[in-house]
Simulated assay, not measured.
Amino acid sequence: MSTRRSARLAASESKTTIASPAPSAPSAQRGRKRKAGTDAEPNGRITTPPPPTPTPSNVKLMVEPAAPGVATPPSKKPRAAAVDRLADSDITLATLLSPETSRVVTSKKVRARSPEASPTKKPMRDVFAPKVSETANILEEGNKFLISVDPRMRPLVENNHCRIFSPEGLAERVDPFEALCSGIISQQVSGAAAKSIKKRFIDLFYEDEESQSEDEEDDENVKKRPFPVPSQVVDVPLEKLRTAGLSQRKAEYVSGLAEKFVAGELSAQILANAPYEEVIERLTAVRGLGLWSAEMFACFGLKRIDVFSLGDLGVQRGMAAFVGRDIAKLKSKGGKFKYMSEADMKDLSDQFKPYRSLFMWYMWRVEETDISTME
């Protein structure tokens, strides 16, 4: 998940978050020595880093619902979730599961009583401050806000359903340890390889059980076997972790992440309640998790509504197209910010506070939408 390159998304989202890219082609030289950090495809061939990618492909594996039976059943129309709590732009909106206990954790923002309340008056409803919206309505209200700031957002909003912040998406339970491990597994490999490696990683902790039928689909196998908890992972030697298809560095990263959870430096409760800056600081202190990885987890895993990544090339490219720049001409320009400067990205995105996560998500969709209607 460390790569910060994002290209035009090839397919529209199908009720999950964002589409996965096609697996990268295997190397033509079978005997070539593998570089550190690369992983093997399911067929045993070495995977080269996937082509310009896919912020989204890395994110998809990370945001799969945690634990069996807790995902919202698929439906043609988004269903209202059994969750309706006040939402602050600086707290976690996701319902988290404690990795070790599966205890449900939600943000416990300190409530402040309305100043109008007094002993002689009927107490008014406590509120979170600052209040953004109730979670059941946050997507609808966020979309209205984006359009009010810039009417060019309308076709993006009308043509793309952001499931992440929908009632359905917010009702899903996220195991932060599994989500972060999945992000590490996804680094520099194709979506198919990452999915296979994750399955084999989980299988390491069920070797004593009767093997599943070979005819059973991988997805079903993963769903039936809960993700290992941090205390289990720290007890497994790196050599054994590598048998799942992890590189040496990724094995170290996953083991190190588990140690952070076991030591209490990371937990579902901390991630639910900590201010955004603290969340980023704690995550980037983990080997294998850079700023971009932490931002993606904060947005897609913790479902914080006001996250924005200046370092994502796909977002930068989408923003440039959104304001009418010629992407084809800018493509050959050198430098990290070839489509739009960092300062311009910040100036534009700041207009959409406190819904920058939502704005960022739509920027990944710009090139899938007829932007001529925005002019």
Rank of each mutant, 00 (worst) to 15 (best):
residue 199 K to I: 06
residue 349 S to Q: 02
residue 169 G to D: 09
residue 294 A to G: 07
residue 334 G to V: 03
residue 85 R to P: 08
residue 330 L to K: 03
residue 121 K to E: 15
residue 83 V to D: 00
residue 177 F to W: 04
residue 359 F to R: 01
residue 301 G to A: 07
residue 119 P to E: 14
residue 128 F to T: 05
residue 35 K to N: 12
residue 243 T to Q: 14
residue 338 K to F: 13
residue 321 A to C: 10
residue 17 T to D: 06
residue 139 L to F: 04
residue 6 S to H: 07
residue 301 G to P: 13
residue 310 L to D: 15
residue 306 D to M: 03
residue 170 L to I: 11
residue 182 S to R: 03
residue 157 V to K: 00
residue 68 P to H: 04
residue 79 R to N: 07
residue 202 I to S: 03
residue 319 M to Y: 03
residue 191 G to Y: 05
residue 67 A to N: 09
residue 296 M to K: 02
residue 272 A to V: 11
residue 254 V to K: 00
residue 76 K to R: 13
residue 195 K to E: 09
residue 165 F to Y: 11
residue 116 E to I: 13
residue 42 P to Q: 05
residue 95 T to W: 00
residue 192 A to T: 11
residue 297 F to M: 04
residue 87 A to H: 02
residue 187 Q to V: 11
residue 170 L to M: 04
residue 8 R to M: 14
residue 310 L to T: 14
residue 346 K to A: 13
residue 34 R to K: 08
residue 48 T to A: 08
residue 204 L to A: 12
residue 241 L to Q: 11
residue 298 A to S: 15
residue 36 A to C: 08
residue 274 A to Q: 02
residue 244 A to T: 12
residue 308 F to H: 05
residue 65 P to N: 01
residue 173 R to K: 15
residue 149 V to A: 05
residue 146 L to H: 01
residue 186 S to I: 05
residue 319 M to A: 14
residue 306 D to F: 01
residue 246 L to T: 04
residue 13 E to I: 07
residue 356 R to H: 05
residue 261 F to M: 09
residue 357 S to R: 03
residue 5 R to F: 13
residue 358 L to W: 02
residue 312 D to C: 03
residue 250 K to P: 03
residue 24 S to Q: 09
residue 188 Q to N: 14
residue 195 K to P: 00
residue 61 L to G: 06
residue 94 A to H: 03
residue 235 D to R: 10
residue 327 I to Q: 03
residue 114 S to P: 12
residue 304 R to W: 06
residue 366 V to C: 05
residue 168 E to S: 09
residue 215 D to K: 08
residue 52 P to D: 14
residue 307 V to K: 04
residue 147 I to G: 03
residue 154 R to D: 14
residue 89 S to W: 08
residue 64 E to W: 00
residue 262 V to C: 08
residue 7 A to M: 09
residue 281 E to Q: 07
residue 153 M to N: 06
residue 93 L to T: 12
residue 183 G to W: 01
residue 179 A to R: 00
residue 154 R to N: 14
residue 39 D to V: 10
residue 344 D to W: 02
residue 353 K to N: 11
residue 25 A to E: 15
residue 81 A to M: 10
residue 201 F to I: 02
residue 307 V to A: 04
residue 35 K to D: 15
residue 71 A to I: 06
residue 202 I to Y: 01
residue 105 V to K: 04
residue 70 V to D: 11
residue 186 S to L: 07
residue 143 N to G: 07
residue 301 G to M: 06
